[in-house]
Write a protein that binds this DNA or RNA. Structure first.
Lengths: 201, 201
DNA sequence: GTCTATACTCTGATAGAC
DNA sequence: GTCTATCAGAGTATAGAC
């Protein structure tokens, strides 16, 4: 798919993916054009297609690479730790992803919104498996009475919904809050409060 | 923009907007084609352009019409009512919108995700004004000690994030939960619990 | 490996008959 | 009011020189 053999090839592949992420995340798959990606990358259009066989291949490469990063915060939630500390840590890490990788978040959101034609298998496979496992951990903590009893899957959905909202709907959040505020910092504090109250027994 | 004079013109305009909503919400603005909309509407492509001057005009008509519906649940929140009842009522009405109008929700999400080029003014105008007003109501209730003190704007964002997640990311929610469940019904119950705990003093 | 030139398809919009 | 035919431009991808 890619051709990352020599140093220069690896470097150009990286440049292209960086540019592709910039454009796909802002315009969606269909809205993005190779011309735009080529311009951002500083390469010619045919040169893009020397490194990737098609526009779709670039998109797929981005989605595949990001999904792993995306799941890391949940993976790190430790069944042996303190429940509230672990869950708040998860929320904080997910919030940091929204802050540091908003383009990846929007790329993903665009894809899911349109039914996930290019990522469906990964959702139904790896992602579902991880969520089911961690939902089991949450259910265990609830059985032990260490956090409030809640539907574990929906608890995880609520973390996704709340944290990703600040990356994906950034334009709306900023427009409503107005100038001179720091939405992400405010959100971090608010979400800690929210989840502390939610988990309290 | 439209030309809703005679009965037949009104009817065709409706048919077109219904088809346009179907396609735009599933594919985004750029992903949608007039051919697809024409096919869904059962009309010829030039006929679409007899009723609307351009593809963009159809999109704008849909956004304009939906924004009003979209804000209704928040408008109905009554400063004179019981705070918890009013807020939970708002959450419930917003959840009903996600259930009954998922296409409108995705149309809106697609637009905001891409920076809202065709709806920005409405966001910065009507929507911001309404949110600021209702944030004031919430702040008043907090001052009176009738609900927990929280940042009012973020409280509203959390309602949006949580309810719209179930419409916009429906594919993911269903894939993770697996077969034989009713995500929206589960979500309704979960969100009532969540907001009750969050608002408790 | 990279570029210029170009083939070919798709798509939004228009012309003009009926 | 609606259709067939078609234009003009954009967009993905390839050919082939260097």
């Amino acid at each position: 798919m890619t051709r990352p053999r020599t140093r220069i090839q690896t470097k150009n592949s990286e440049t292209i993916l960086e540019a592709a992420l910039e454009v796909f995340s802002a315009q969606g798959f269909r809205g993005a054009t190779l011309d735009q990606i080529a311009e951002v990358a500083g390469l010619s259009k045919p040169n893009l297609l020397y490194y990737f066989p098609s526009k779709e291949a670039m998109h797929r490469a981005l989605l595949t690479r990001m999904l792993d990063t995306w799941l890391d915060p949940l993976r790190e939630m430790d069944a042996g730790g303190d429940p509230v500390v672990e869950i708040l840590g998860y929320v904080r890490r997910k919030m940091e992803l929204s802050r540091d990788y908003p383009r990846e978040s929007r790329l993903f959101a665009n894809e899911i919104l349109q039914g996930g034609p290019r990522i469906r298998e990964a959702i139904e496979g790896d992602l579902k498996a991880l969520v089911d496992e961690k939902a089991g951990v949450l259910a265990g903590w609830m059985d032990e009475g260490r956090i409030a009893r809640l539907p574990p899957h929906h608890l995880i959905f609520s973390v996704w919904a709340l944290t990703q909202h600040y990356a994906d709907f950034d334009m709306q959040v900023r427009a409503v809050l107005g100038e001179g505020r720091d939405p992400l910092a405010e959100a971090g504090a608010f979400l800690e409060t929210l989840f502390r109250k939610l988990l309290a027994t």
